[in-house]
């Protein structure tokens, strides 16, 4: 799974950082900083919950990206 922030939609509610502190922290202005775009399998559920909770739908969890072990940028499923 790959996470992206739509910075235009994001208004800095900060819920994502509460729900996924493993990957998301807030900058001094309250906007999310992603430690990594690729979400480890163990955190996929939390990431989905964080994306779902975003009040402005600015956090996007893309399931078509799968992080394999040691794959830094992920791969898109064929087809």
């Amino acid at each position: 799974m790959r996470l992206r922030v739509n910075p235009i939609a994001c208004t800095g509610h900060g819920m994502c950082a509460e729900l996924l502190p493993e990957l998301i922290t807030l900058d001094p202005w309250g906007y999310p900083l992603l430690a990594s775009e690729m979400v480890p399998q163990a955190l996929a559920g939390h990431a989905r919950r964080a994306a779902d909770a975003c009040p402005t739908l600015a956090l996007l969890a893309d399931d078509s990206f799968v992080a394999g072990p040691g794959v830094r940028h992920g791969r898109r499923h064929a087809g």
């Binding site: 910075p7 994001c10 001094p28 202005w29």
Partner: peptide
């Protein structure tokens, strides 16, 4: 004036 990091940064 759309993205927070740009607006404040």
């Amino acid at each position: 004036g759309q993205c927070g990091p740009c607006v404040f940064g």
